[in-house]
Design a protein around this nucleic acid. Structure first.
Length: 482
RNA sequence: GGCCCUAUCGUCUAAUGGUUAGGACAUCGCCCUUUCACGGCGGUAAUAUGGGUUCGAAUCCCGUUAGGGUCACCA
């Protein structure tokens, strides 16, 4: 294939949807795999939906996910501008050409008439469609209306009784009857184009070779085909991607959980995991491999192997992948992440050495899926416990416990040089043997005393990491508090 | 409702006319472990349905059913 150019063309609604991320990713992978160009185009033709900072958010989210675009805002490749709101002249020029050729026409119908028409059609269970009322206007009438400053739109003049057939890489042959296609508005009364017009013109002008987008666009594709034909332009190859679904199989939506890439980022999911996960939602290489890095995805990706049915966004599988990716992270990036999480936490006023944090990571890595979770699951590495788990208290804290722990603290205080966790194990085992009790009788209350919790790394690990002083002071505190 | 798309374990999927229908996540059980995890081993679990075509169908064709998308001066 030559001159592969694909685009991700979101409208700036405020955040990047995970479905959008998947669409962007497939475009990106396809471009990279085929030495093509990945273009970002902002479809901001709806003035009423303008959201402050949306474009920045979008670009940041893409960057975070590792999807660097080759052309787009602030990165001109000779096909700009990449904001549709800056290309109004172009759309108007082409719309005029269509009107000239009678492939489009002025429409002066009021919103009132349109709603009445639609209601009527709906009540008769008919498809809501414009009735071509203004198509019969004479040139003189149109000129009069225009001169009188009447608001107008420009509509696509869909021919009657034709079949529109196109080929989709994923769905193969798709056919529509023009009788089922509405005379779509191309230019709105505010002078802005609708998606359909702007999209077709830009894809042509930007020399897009493959239109890879969500399946929700499949039913408006015949309108686009019609436009390409009217202009006499070559039609790009289409690939309509299966939708991402809620657990109840409806189109993935905000109502049923997190849908923005930023939400997952904020929760501690890594970009590698999220990318890996959405890549597999609707595509696989044909083998059993499930763990991928971006470069491997690029190497393996092909549109031929994209599925044709919708895929449920299964958070459990994402969690698993996130864990897998987390465990493979190099030590220094774990360290950096943990430091930045601490800086953003309640513990941000304290200082911890890299050696210390490194030990914390080693002890927790098998128990968490993000550095953020280390803070949540083992706060005792960052400050003294302020409360003690009730359930563990009733289970492990017996009348004789304070005395036993005090004795244990005394023996710990005698420890001179501590080089590893076993230095703490010895006195505990000895005490247990002397008292004729199982080590568990000491281990469980000890864990509760120093951590406030009943789960976590081995007690000796905890003691070794927090050190002798803290161990003793926490035991003393617990003896008084419980 | 019209039009369009889709249909393999609960979920993501493999098997492109011949397999005991495979893997992964989840789930369950056992082992490891004086906690929680990790890990190891094993189990439960699917071709929506009815017809064709064929020696042979998850796979090809038709119908049915179910789900989804779309029917805006939103993208």
């Amino acid at each position: 294939m030559e001159n592969i150019r694909v685009r991700f063309a979101p409208s700036p609604t405020g955040y990047l949807h995970v479905g959008g991320l998947r669409t962007a990713l497939y475009n990106y992978l396809f471009a990279k795999r085929n030495s093509g160009k990945f273009i970002l185009r902002i479809e901001d033709t709806d003035q009423s939906r303008y959201v402050e900072g949306a474009v920045e958010n979008l670009i940041n989210a893409l960057k975070w996910a590792g999807l660097e675009f080759d052309e787009g805002p602030d990165k001109d490749g000779g096909f700009g501008p990449y904001f549709q709101s800056q290309r109004l002249d172009i759309y108007n020029k082409y719309a005029a050409e269509l009107v000239e050729k009678k492939n489009a026409y002025y429409c002066f119908c009021t919103p009132d008439r349109l709603t009445t028409l639609r209601d009527e059609q709906k009540s008769k269970n008919l498809q809501a469609k414009y009735d071509k009322h203004c198509l019969s206007l004479s040139d003189a009438q149109i000129k009069d209306n225009l001169d009188a400053g009447m608001p107008f739109v420009i509509r696509l003049n869909v021919p009657i009784g034709e079949k529109i057939v196109f080929n989709d890489i994923i769905r193969n042959r798709v056919e529509f009857d023009t009788a089922t296609i509405d005379d779509q508005v191309l230019i709105k009364s505010d002078g802005f184009p609708t998606y359909h017009l702007a999209n077709v013109i830009d894809d042509h002008l930007m020399e897009i070779s493959h239109v890879i987008r969500g399946e929700e666009w499949l039913s408006s594709t015949p309108k686009h085909v019609l436009l390409y034909n009217f202009f006499g332009w070559e039609i790009p190859l289409f690939a309509h991607l299966p939708l991402l679904l809620n657990p109840d199989k409806t189109k993935l939506s905000k109502r049923q959980g997190d849908v923005a890439v930023e939400d997952y980022r904020a929760k501690g999911y890594s970009p590698e995991a999220l990318v890996n996960f959405v890549a597999l939602l609707g595509w696989n290489a044909g083998d059993d491999k499930e763990f991928y890095y971006m470069d491997e995805l690029i190497e393996k990706f092909s549109l031929d192997r994209v599925n044709n049915s919708g895929a449920v966004f299964d958070i459990q599988k994402l969690n698993w992948l996130n864990t897998e990716h987390f465990r493979k992270l190099p030590k220094d990036s774990l360290l950096n992440q943990l430091k930045s999480d601490i800086a953003n936490s309640e513990f941000n006023d304290k200082k911890y050495s890299e050696e210390y944090l490194s030990l914390v990571i080693d002890s927790m890595i098998e128990r968490v899926a993000s550095t953020k979770e280390i803070l949540e699951k083992s706060p005792y590495f960052f400050s003294d416990p302020i409360s003690y788990e009730e359930e563990s208290k009733t289970k492990n804290w017996k009348p004789e416990t304070p005395e036993l722990l005090s004795e244990l603290a005394k023996r710990f205080s005698l420890l001179e040089e501590i080089t590893n966790k076993h230095d703490f194990e010895k006195p505990l085992k000895e005490l247990a043997a002397e008292k004729g009790i199982g080590a568990g009788k000491l281990i469980h209350p000890l864990r509760l005393a120093v951590s406030g919790m009943s789960t976590g790394p081995g007690v000796y690990d905890i003691l070794y990491i927090i050190g002798k002083e803290k161990t003793i002071s926490r035991i003393e505190k617990a003896v008084k508090a419980i």
